[in-house]
């Protein structure tokens, strides 16, 4: 029983990290109808930057988020302006392929800069654990999960409580209408893209502390993040969070009770099953284009 509680708790903490990265992905999709296949690559990229900051400056990797996130945000903004903006109105198929190409380029760059060997960030508390009511919780996971939740809550508050958040939601719901009431949709889109990637960046910094990583790991990450987003319903932030928590728990339980090697496969099976029963995802509404032109 204690064992189960511990696994559930660890799964939820892991889910918090997933939620951060998947939230960024679903935010970008919700506002811009762009499926950012490079989201996983940016996540690993952030892990490498965190690694360098930790190595060179000796700052705690989780605190280093304060440095890495703005850096990743800027990179996201430049990426958007440079290569996504020119084909922003193209069909989803084009942007999928574009960001897919971007992911490969990022992977190559990471391989050239940091090498293709497994890299790990090990802060002092890397091997320590909290013991609480018989539960055994690695400190890195607890800290990582808490930081993820903190960033996620900040993001959520920003989206719901600020003018910028309202502008973003308006641009997502009705771009033409938003433009009419004075929101520069193009500027909002750049901001959202950068913000979504920064969320993945924050997630990547935490992931770097939890697991060793290689440039090629971004494939597994994007597959996982996409599965989460589909599970929760495309474009729904709450759906992504719910999907991420379920995914984290499912992976942890599979690793603990079935076999660690199958841990990556079982959640996909769940996604296939959910889609078979509910194609629009858990919290998604059916994407129905409205034929009313005027």
């Amino acid at each position: 029983m204690t064992q189960l509680a511990q696994n559930l708790l660890l799964g939820l903490l892991l889910g918090g990290v997933y939620a951060l990265a998947a939230g960024g992905l679903t935010l970008i999709f919700g506002v811009m109808r762009v499926i950012n296949i490079a989201q996983g690559a940016f996540l690993i990229f952030a892990a490498f930057i965190t690694y360098s900051v930790w190595q060179v400056l000796g700052i705690d990797p989780l605190l280093a988020i304060v440095i890495t996130t703005p850096v990743i945000f800027s990179i996201g903004w430049v990426t958007y302006k440079g290569i996504v903006a020119p084909i922003r109105t193209a069909p989803i198929a084009s942007t999928v392929l574009l960001t897919f190409g971007l992911a490969l380029v990022l992977e190559a760059v990471m391989g050239m800069v940091w090498g293709n060997n497994s890299t790990a960030i090990r802060p002092g508390y890397g091997n320590e654990s909290f013991t609480f009511a018989g539960l055994y919780l690695p400190k890195a996971q607890v800290y990582g999960g808490l930081v993820a939740i903190l960033v996620l809550v900040t993001l959520g508050l920003m989206l719901t409580k600020t003018w910028l958040g309202r502008a973003i939601r308006a641009a997502a719901a009705n771009p033409a209408g938003a433009e009419l009431v004075g929101i520069k949709v193009a500027a909002v889109a750049a901001l959202v893209f950068a913000l979504g990637i920064a969320a993945a960046g924050a997630g990547g910094a935490i992931v770097g502390v939890l697991y060793p990583f290689v440039p090629g790991a971004h494939y597994q990450w994007i597959a996982r993040l996409l599965a989460i987003v589909v599970l929760g319903g495309m474009g729904s932030l709450n759906g992504a969070i719910l999907g991420a928590l379920m995914f984290g728990v499912a992976e942890t339980l599979t690793a603990a009770y079935i076999a660690p090697s199958w841990a990556t496969a079982v959640p996909y099976a769940i996604v296939f099953l959910v889609l078979l029963i509910r194609p629009q995802g858990l919290l998604g509404s059916r994407l129905r284009e409205d034929a009313v032109a005027a």
Partner: peptide, 21 residues
């Protein structure tokens, strides 16, 4: 069965699923 972007996403997940299998 539904339309839209879930297909492309599922194909990515599928690629990794068969590899894991």
């Amino acid at each position: 069965r539904s339309r839209g972007p879930s297909f492309v996403i599922i194909t990515v997940a599928f690629l990794f699923l068969v590899q894991v299998i």
